[in-house]
Design a protein around this nucleic acid. Structure first.
Lengths: 122, 122
DNA sequence: TTATTATATGAACAAACTTTAATATGATTC
DNA sequence: GAATCATATTAAAGTTTGTTCATATAATAA
């Protein structure tokens, strides 16, 4: 798991100590686990999901994102900041407007996978 | 976006009204957006991420998940409940123990995609 | 039946998150 | 430079989330 995690695998019930060691190897280290969960957290809010779906097609200014997501300007700005901090979107300024776009295409992949799951739940 | 969302696309800045209508069609309806963000929320906590990585290999009882994630029994139970409510894991009882396992393989796919992104950020 | 083991649940508290309102900053136009 | 437009930031308020502690339930063993 991580260098600091305890490694006392005596007292396991459903798996052996050896299995435990193998399984734990397949869990990313703590830093990666934290990055993964932070990324998912950035994707865990409806307005942010909408923003990313809109940006999946093309870049857009904040004003238009505000209109199309039916949220307040301030709220959209806050959400964009969170997405940016997680390297999901990037911004470029052109005159008074700031245009946001997706950083990479992994996001779209994540959404497809997530939709597959959601639809699987039915 | 959703049947209830406003559809006043006059006053857009960076895209045309027609583009707006096209883009909005590509955003899932509100219910799907909510499901997607809820699923991501379930994945947005480090202990839950670890649990899912462990279960990706094989089913496991709560006690062993508690040991391997280095969390308290109560905390793991609460997390498992959230994962179950989101149809990410399922449980079967065998004697005193309850064994949890992944519901489907989409989760592993989601993790790979997310790791790709996290590593891309570097 | 009582005790023990494994897991789940409920309440309480702190920490984190989201929204709003007000204001600040940056860029353009008059 | 003053006014305006687009976006960002800050602080405050309300809400949600995660942990812990205590306790409940379920199954088995003594």
């Amino acid at each position: 798991m991580s260098p600091k995690s305890q490694e006392d695998y005596t007292n396991l019930h459903s798996i052996s100590e050896d299995e435990a060691r193998e399984l734990v190897k397949r869990v990313p280290d703590q830093e990666s686990v934290d990055s993964i969960s932070e990324t998912f957290r950035a994707l865990s809010e409806p307005t942010r999901v909408k923003i990313l779906y809109l940006l999946a097609s093309e870049e857009m200014c904040v004003h238009d994102l505000t209109t199309l997501t039916d949220s307040s300007q301030s709220s959209v700005s806050h959400h964009l900041k969170i997405l940016k901090l997680n390297d999901l979107v990037e911004a470029r300024r052109e005159g008074k407007a700031v245009y946001y776009s997706l950083v990479d295409q992994h996001v779209s992949g994540l959404f497809s996978k997530c939709l597959e799951h959601v639809e699987y739940e039915e």
